[in-house]
């Protein structure tokens, strides 16, 4: 299991780096899906079987597909970005990478400076998760539902286009 954790972890990190650095948007997304799958393995190893399944189904399966759809709709996959192949000049990434490195250093300092001895991990069954979700977190689920509704209404409104009418305020623009 430990080996699985390390292998999945390395794959997750490498594929995430690839996802962030690829110039081709579709490639980046595919790497990201790999990264999410690896993350799912990590979650599984950590004992969260339910979450691992959700990671695959919702994150890699649903959300990422949405991204792919939009990229294909806008047709910005390959060529537009290819033209700027040399986009990854050091000037652009060195600052952000440095910042992220510092942030990571700070966080690892905090993580590794634990006064308490390392606790062990244990498996949390999907059943307990489900029960807690619908008892203790019932109101939370309700709020999440409202949140999704707000998202749907917002996306519906914003996605709507009709060319002929123009807002009176915007005639000047």
């Amino acid at each position: 299991m430990l080996i699985a954790f390390y292998i999945a972890g390395v794959i997750a990190v490498v594929s995430t780096i690839m996802a962030v650095t690829r110039s081709n948007a579709v490639h980046a997304l595919l790497y990201l899906i790999v990264s999410f799958l690896a993350a799912a393995v990590v979650l599984f190893v950590l004992g969260a079987h339910f979450a691992a399944a959700l990671e695959v189904i919702v994150y890699a399966g649903a959300i990422m597909v949405l991204f792919v759809f939009v990229i294909m709709m806008l047709n910005i996959g390959g060529e537009t970005e290819k033209a700027k192949e040399r986009w990854l000049v050091p000037k652009r990434w060195i600052g952000p990478a440095l910042m992220a490195a510092i942030l990571f250093a700070i966080l690892s300092y905090a993580i590794l400076n634990q006064p308490v001895a390392t606790a062990s991990l244990s498996i949390v069954e999907p059943k307990t998760v489900g029960i807690s979700l619908y008892t203790q977190y019932l109101l939370g689920v309700e709020i999440a539902a409202v949140m999704l509704m707000a998202g749907i209404i917002g996306a519906f409104h914003l996605g709507y286009t009709k060319r002929k009418s123009k807002h009176r305020f915007l005639k000047g623009e």
Binding site: M147, A150, I153, G154, H157, L158, H167, F169, L170, E173
Partner: peptide
């Protein structure tokens, strides 16, 4: 999430 849509509500601008 409600705010994102509200901010861009007049979305032809």
């Amino acid at each position: 999430i409600s705010l994102y849509a509200l901010i861009s509500y007049i979305h032809r601008s």
